[in-house]
Design a binder for these strands. Structure first.
Lengths: 165, 165
DNA sequence: GGGATCATGTAACGAGTTACATGATTTG
DNA sequence: CAAATCATGTAACTCGTTACATGATCCC
């Protein structure tokens, strides 16, 4: 369901696009929120077209197919945004490592937290480059940035904690 | 893979347990980090047993099977904790709603953020009850709490932002 | 005896990943 | 012409969810 919503959202927000374009958007602007590769996107667009949520507007060079959102797609997107209580389901490998940290001895734990911190830091650098603008992703970007900064702070506190012991 | 690790981690941290026990742990202590229901856990334990990572220690009343982690399981768990760079993959319905927020008009956006905030708040209340203790999950709990507090702050700032406009 | 909880499973389906496969066009 | 990028797809597999199914034991 969420993949559909993400695709509908992009088509609605940035206008008609090909599967290829949409895959790029996933890579560059949506990646801190949802992930999907082209192998998932292409078949989904076909299904969505047969469900009447999108339509092929035109076929361009190199077999390029431009999809547009239909009124029905717009309705479905809007309904999801307004009615759907988003699931709180979390599956985070990082949090799992954090959870199991007490199973390691001091030095191993420190090294693991440092690795986690580096990952957060790298991602923060990427997000920071996406800078202030961004009509569509604006609020999500701010959310991502504050969560990352908080997580880095957690890593620092945890490192201090582990080193103290 | 991560499901295996989570199960190995629990067996290692809290000692021998049945699939049922492990499912309860997932519900009560691991749920802010990883989720799995019994329908996923039971078959996975069988596979893990055939891979030599766990063993059935004893069979108790009502067909209860107690699993223990084997030395090989311990090795695998340790290796993952020490060597594995955790994936940064995120799939968050909440962040997706946040991303698409600019597609809504002012009042709808406000209502949506309020719904998101309520979700965060509810989860925060749950986590806060798990209180200070917790050998195994200690660090993950702190991480979860700070992330939630940050997210609630984001919701408040976003609401202020939307109301100003 | 009846309802709650303990305890384990299977089957069907949907979501997501990895590997494979193909061909057109642009740029150096 | 060769390499990069554009552009689309399929197949096999793993992971996760929902629905179904069964029976034992405990407590009222």
């Amino acid at each position: 369901m969420s993949l559909r919503i993400a695709l509908l959202g992009l088509l609605s927000g940035v206008g008609p696009a090909s599967g290829y374009d949409l895959a790029k958007k996933f890579e560059h602007s949506l990646n801190h929120v949802w992930q999907a590769g082209h192998t998932q996107i292409y078949p989904e667009l076909v299904k969505m077209a047969s469900d009447g949520l999108v339509a092929v507007e035109s076929e361009g060079a190199r077999g390029r197919k431009i999809y547009t959102i239909t009124p029905e797609g717009t309705r479905e997107l809007h309904e999801w945004m307004v009615d759907h209580a988003p699931s709180l389901t979390i599956r985070s490998e990082i949090a799992l490592q954090a959870f199991l940290l007490p199973l390691l001895d001091r030095d191993e734990a420190i090294a693991t937290v440092e690795r986690i911190r580096a990952g957060y830091q790298a991602r923060l650098a990427v997000l920071e480059c996406k800078g202030g603008e961004a009509g569509l992703g604006k609020y999500a970007l701010r959310l991502g940035l504050s969560q990352l900064r908080t997580s880095i702070q957690w890593a620092d506190e945890t490192l201090a904690d582990l080193k103290r012991a």
